[in-house]
Design a protein around this nucleic acid. Structure first.
Lengths: 330, 330
DNA sequence: ATGGTCGCTGAAACCGGTTACTGCAACGTT
DNA sequence: AACGTTGCAGTAACCGGTTTCAGCGACCAT
């Protein structure tokens, strides 16, 4: 169990060569005679020698690792995001660290601490303080994921403005009045942009927007709570625009649970287009964002190295309006 | 962006002390006079010095990191598992690596490669070959997660045998005949144990078990496929026991989608008790396993160090039968 | 005054790799 | 025969920390 591994020097001793030669053979570069190479390879194979990543990293001055910082792993959105990031990074030969902040007080310190073991860090928008982000960026390349670029820190994000199109669709095509927005903009760049786009859609349709959003969390259970909040009175909104699919699914469950018909009594829309959204009845009208690709692009950007002159500062991936039954479409 | 960080030697030079003193001050151990300490702290603060984790790891001969290997991040089960693992590891001050195998050919190599950068690895049952697992365990402490102990490799898992109790409940309490099992035992220790328990339940109830399971994947969409397979004919099973909740939810959606009533026409059960299972109508009868705790216990075990004499070889967490509407209970 | 103890600090070795530089032998060229 | 090349392999420095050991001055006891 966990025997201590052999080092270059020990392998060199056994093979009767110098450590330089062992290194040359194991890396496959530099000049080594066929006989010596064979002998060293033999010893390496026999003892299962595998160079320590630590020594390698120290000598090469790069870690061969990247990190991703996110609030927590709740729900399919973050799963997909991390999956895309992880897959892409591993393909590029970089090892992947994850840091969930879980709203812990020490989270910012944890993030700073990890900067010493990676070549780059992707930070999900709104998870750490701006000040921490700046300090971090001073030490290691950083990419903001699902947030806006900040000073020299590039960002990768999806086009949230399509919520305006969705809002116009609800107001103009279906004629709904009194729309509600479910989600908490504070601390989330994504939700902030979606709320802004929701208001923009109202302005474009020349319909007054509601005063403010209904502030709840981003999980399904929060959607159930929101449904209770919005649908308990007699005069409830005609359509509920949710900041993401998970809350939308929660609202849907809550609506159906209290005997309302969707979309006849109330229309519901989401954002993300998670797998579940096409499976429920009625299907959830939503905005599809390429979550996995978002993670993958971020990983590629980080590995290519950020901050060089002419580097991409803002990558915005396109989103797509997906019309299903929950908004009133057939 | 990503300025190169200062090293101990540079800080020492600036503060006019030796590197040993800088190290002592930054670590807060060893004897340093108050004046010197103050001066060095000043310089450290001013230049934002943060010791390289790499140098530290090399000198201390431990990485301060652990890794978790899993097939992929699909669905709430793995999210919860990783979340529990990550949270616990971070609390203990260990950084967390993740490796998704994604059924890639190079996955086993990736896993071996990562052994050089962590102090311990948790491997989800069935993700890598047994041979790779043994080689890995020879280099670094390993814990099998959701699998059986192997040679000297300890395991952390949930009690899958409770599926026998569930099976008896369906056969004896509800009187269902012709039960089907949905899930692929091959390559998954968990599913294998659940299938075995399913057969055991039949033996205990003195009812012949079906010849074999319906082999599909572990995702919701696979459940929908399974529903098509099992429920298209006129004579379909009276109850469908799924290897996990996600497939069960897929089967539920598929059943409802083709106009069947659950549980009147067909009963459906799962395993895991994910959040969704208590929200759907009818509620999903399932077996609750403490997924998050599974990850947390694994992290603790790994960090405490495995392989010592008297170490725990097999940790089995208890599961619980959760009766909801989908099996016919009120 | 001398020797011993104590508190503080620095020099140097070490962790496990990579690599620039050097040395050496064998070979070819003039 | 003297010299320059070339191929191969070893020495040693270096990456950025930690830690052992030794040294040095101040203090105290004899």
């Amino acid at each position: 169990m966990g025997n201590q591994r052999l080092t270059v020097r020990e392998i060199a001793e056994i093979a009767g060569v110098s450590i330089a030669t062992v290194s040359r053979v194991s890396r496959g570069i530099g000049q080594v005679s066929p006989e010596t190479r064979e002998r060293v390879l033999q010893v390496i194979e026999e003892h299962g020698y595998r160079p320590s990543q630590l020594g390698k990293a120290l000598a090469e001055r790069k870690h061969g690792a990247v990190a991703m910082v996110f609030p927590g792993l709740s729900g399919p959105y973050f799963s997909e995001l991390i999956q895309g990031f992880e897959y892409e990074a591993m393909e590029a030969g970089a090892s992947v660290h994850i840091v969930g902040t879980h709203h812990r007080a020490a989270a910012d310190d944890d993030v700073l601490a990890i900067s010493g073991r990676v070549d780059g860090i992707a930070v999900h928008g709104g998870t750490i303080q701006e000040q921490t982000l700046r300090r971090l960026a001073a030490e290691v390349p950083v990419v903001v994921l699902a947030g806006r670029p900040l000073d020299g820190i590039p960002a990768v994000r999806a086009d949230n403005s399509r919520v305006a199109e969705l809002t116009r669709h609800l107001l103009l095509d279906h004629g709904y009045r009194r729309l509600a927005f479910v989600g908490t903009p504070d601390g989330s760049p994504d939700v902030t942009e979606r709320w802004e786009a929701f208001k923009l859609g109202h302005r474009e349709a020349r319909v007054p927007a509601p005063k403010g959003p209904l502030k709840v969390g981003m999980q399904q259970s929060d959607g159930v709570i929101a449904a209770g909040e919005l649908l308990s009175g007699r005069r409830h909104p005609g359509a509920i625009v949710c900041a993401n699919d998970e809350t939308a699914l929660g609202v849907l469950i809550g609506a159906l649970g209290r005997g309302l018909k969707v979309p006849e009594d109330v229309a519901i829309t989401g954002f993300d287009d998670v797998a579940m959204s096409s499976l429920v009845r009625p299907g959830l009208t939503t905005i599809r964002q390429p979550v996995r690709e978002l993670g993958a692009v971020t990983a590629r950007l980080l590995i290519a190295g950020v901050g060089g002159p002419g580097a991409v500062m803002d990558t915005v991936l396109t989103t797509e309006l997906v019309l299903r039954g929950s908004c009133g479409c057939p």
